[in-house]
Amino acid sequence: HTVDVQGVTYHFDNPEEARKFAEEMAKRLGLQVHVKDGRYKVE
């Protein structure tokens, strides 16, 4: 499970961890979480 944050890619084994990380980063950076091709993108 992959999370892209402003061009940096993070990998997680656990989909729940990936989702939480994406939401946390989006909140911290004031950005949105998009799901695209099964990847989380924070932009």
Rank of each mutant, 00 (worst) to 15 (best):
G38A: 03
G7I: 02
F12V: 02
P15I: 09
R19E: 08
H11L: 13
F21E: 01
A18F: 00
H34L: 10
A26I: 01
E23M: 11
D13W: 10
Y10Q: 04
A18T: 04
V3H: 00
K20E: 14
F12L: 04
K20Y: 12
N14H: 13
A26M: 02
V8A: 12
A18K: 01
F12R: 01
H11A: 10
E16Y: 10
M25G: 03
E43L: 06
E16I: 12
K36S: 14
G38E: 05
T2A: 14
F21M: 04
V35K: 06
V42T: 02
L29I: 03
N14P: 02
V5P: 00
N14V: 10
E16T: 11
L31W: 10
G30H: 07
R39E: 15
K27Q: 12
A18E: 00
E43T: 08
Y40V: 03
T9K: 07
K36M: 13
V33I: 07
Q6P: 04
L31I: 04
K20D: 12
A18V: 03
M25P: 00
G30Y: 04
V42A: 02
E17P: 06
L29E: 03
K27V: 09
V8D: 10
Y10G: 01
H1E: 06
L31T: 05
K36D: 14
F21R: 02
A18M: 03
T2Q: 14
V8T: 13
Y40R: 01
R19P: 02
K20V: 13
E23C: 07
F12G: 00
K27C: 08
Y40K: 01
P15D: 15
E16A: 10
T9Q: 11
T2S: 12
F21H: 04
E17M: 11
Q32R: 10
V35F: 15
K41E: 15
F21W: 08
E24N: 09
R39V: 15
V42W: 02
T9G: 07
N14D: 14
L29Y: 07
V33F: 06
V5Q: 01
V8Q: 12
Y40A: 01
H1Y: 14
G7H: 07
A18C: 05
D13H: 11
N14G: 12
D37M: 03
V35P: 02
L29G: 03
K20F: 12
R19N: 05
L29Q: 03
F12A: 01
Y40C: 04
D4A: 06
R39K: 15
L31V: 06
H34W: 09
D37Y: 04
V5C: 07
V3R: 00
M25W: 13
A26P: 00
R28L: 14
K36W: 08
A18H: 00
K41F: 15
G38S: 04
E16H: 11
G38N: 07
K27S: 11
G30V: 03
Y10L: 05
A22T: 01
Q6L: 15
R39S: 15
A18N: 00
Q6N: 09
D13M: 11
D13A: 11
E24P: 00
H34P: 01
R28A: 13
R28I: 13
T9N: 08
K36C: 07
H11V: 14
G7S: 07
V5W: 03
F21P: 00
R39C: 10
K20R: 12
R19M: 09
A22Q: 00
L29H: 05
K27W: 09
E17S: 12
A22C: 05
E24V: 09
Q32H: 13
A18Q: 05
E24S: 10
V3L: 01
V8H: 12
G7T: 05
V35M: 12
H1D: 08
Q6D: 08
Q6R: 08
E43I: 07
G7A: 06
R19H: 08
Y10V: 06
V3S: 01
Q32I: 13
A22F: 00
R28H: 09
M25T: 13
Q6F: 11
K36Q: 14
V5G: 03
M25L: 07
P15N: 15
Y10D: 01
E17T: 12
G7Q: 06
L29W: 06
V35Y: 15
E17V: 10
Q6Y: 09
V35S: 05
V5M: 06
V42Q: 01
T9S: 13
P15H: 14
V5I: 08
E23P: 00
H11S: 11
H34N: 10
V35I: 13
H34T: 15
E17A: 13
Y40G: 01
F21Q: 02
E17Q: 11
L31C: 05
E16W: 10
R28W: 08
K20S: 13
V3I: 02
R39A: 15
R28E: 11
T9L: 14
G30P: 00
R39H: 15
E43K: 04
D13Q: 11
V35E: 14
F21I: 02
V33A: 04
L31N: 02
V35A: 05
H34G: 05
V8G: 06
D37K: 04
K41W: 15
V8K: 13
H34K: 13
K27E: 14
D37H: 05
E43V: 08
E43C: 08
R28K: 14
D37W: 03
G38M: 03
L31E: 03
L29F: 07
F12T: 01
D37G: 06
T2H: 14
Q32P: 06
A26Y: 01
K27A: 13
V33N: 01
L31A: 10
D37C: 07
K36R: 09
H11C: 07
T2V: 15
A22W: 00
P15T: 12
E16Q: 11
F12I: 03
R39M: 15
D13E: 13
R19G: 07
K41D: 08
R39Y: 15
N14C: 06
A22L: 00
L31G: 09
E24L: 12
H34R: 09
E16F: 10
H34D: 06
E17I: 09
V3Y: 00
Q32T: 14
V42L: 12
P15L: 09
A26F: 01
K41Q: 15
V5N: 03
A18D: 00
G38T: 04
